[in-house]
Amino acid sequence: MSKNNSSASSGGLRGKLNNMTDTNMLLMITIIAFFLMYIGAMIFLGGGFLRTQTFFNILNANAALIVLSCGLSLVMITGSIDISVGGVTALITMCCAVYLDNMGGNVAVSVLIALAIGLAFGAFQGALVAFLDIQPFIVTLAGMFFAKGMTTIVNSNPFNVSNESFTALKNTRIVVPGMGFVNPKGIYVDAYVEIGVIVALLVVVVMFCMLRWTKLGRAFYAVGGNVQSALMLGINVKKTRFLAHLFCGLLSGIGGYVYFLHSGNGAVTNAAGAEMNAIASSIIGGTMLTGGVGNIIGTFFGVLSFSTIQNIVTSAGLDEAWWTGITKAVILCLFLVIQSIVMSRKKK
């Protein structure tokens, strides 16, 4: 339904849309699609979707995914890919969990550990991709397997963290003023978000500004748009590519810790398939796999759309576990094919 609407509106606005940049056009479509979908869900499914907390829970549950998707959008804009983010997240949760519980560490250091792991992966993968010109897919596929393997080497059994200062942090709830709701018993309940959401929103803002207004940000777009041109324009392509992977690594460090804050446990199954969710969210948010096109705000809404779709699928009664997997894949497939068609049309 939402698809029909958006395509109809794009038909009417064709003249205006043609003048729009690729990035802006895809962004608009994503945002409109998200709102249509959410409002549609409120009207037709009602129930949970009418409660504000449902929306904030989507945010709470997907804060880590938002951060990871920002990283993926960045590498995809540069024309590369990183599929190790899920594995790295799992590794981070496990390392931090082991450090906090078995080694009695403190929270601040655990954050540093998370960032260090992310940066290490980013730097190593980035170096192989940028300086040795190895296919990013193979490199980060190996990275993903390495991270997952390392997770079980660090500790093979999943366990919940009981470190007090960590659990205190984990359970911190930030009230969203004025967005609460009245529960069936007639009591007003405040709506809340977790710390991770604040971090994720910060990441979105910082990344958006970086990509939009700094020279480096524009260099990412330039390299993704056309490597040859970027070279001719005097951009250091290798360095730019390396930095993209490094930043993505850093973001998987942050995302990993945000995930850890939400789940509160260390497990190899943590963030399973997160790379695919992040890629799908970025693509839905208008980032092109071919590079050069994308917008962090779009990615943010991409994550929201992607998880809302899953919520809708579940609420619509298709709650068997496999439906989520299949829906995700169908959505990804749909967007990949649309992008491919858009690209081939553009060439003509």
Binding site: I81, I83, F137, L141, G273, M276, I279, L289, A321, W322, W323, T324, G325, I326, K328, A329, V330, L332, C333, L336, V337, S340, I341, M343, S344
Partner: peptide
Amino acid sequence: FKIQPMIATLILYTAGRSI
């Protein structure tokens, strides 16, 4: 659709076990 093989097969990689 000229999608890179690894990205294209990522779809089935995700959906396969569910299917």
